[in-house]
Amino acid sequence: MQTTILKAASNFLLPVLLLFSIFILLRGHYLPGGGFIGGLIASSAFVLDAFANGLVYTKSMLRFHPGFLMPLGLTFSFLAAISPFFVGKPLMHALWMKGHIPVIGKLGTPLIFDIGVYLVVIGAALTIIFTISESR
């Protein structure tokens, strides 16, 4: 399946899709989107890349095993969940920074939580697909 056209296209598509997934992730609080969808789009981007350039290439480009994204993401989400304890609020209480940032809107713990979800989804999906396609 490693055609030249797909290869050439994917070299452009991967960064574009990744950027798009991050955009989807960040705007999730206001418009359709969020960590789950963003994560799935990002994993699709990597899978597409693997189809075009081969699994070995994609993995070497990633530099680390995608599985490590899972604990990382869990840590993000967990910290976001427990951070209200430090200011004496109950678990999962949302904390927001003042001010407004374009696209993202407001910055706060729910966003960090969503980033965690995003990372876990990418990690899980890629781990599953990479392991399966590696196995003979």
Partner: peptide, 16 residues
């Protein structure tokens, strides 16, 4: 949907 993706993947690998 997301959970069932995990479930399906696991089931497929188990079958394999």
């Amino acid at each position: 949907i997301v959970i069932s993706f995990g479930l399906q993947a696991f089931a497929i690998v188990l079958v394999k």
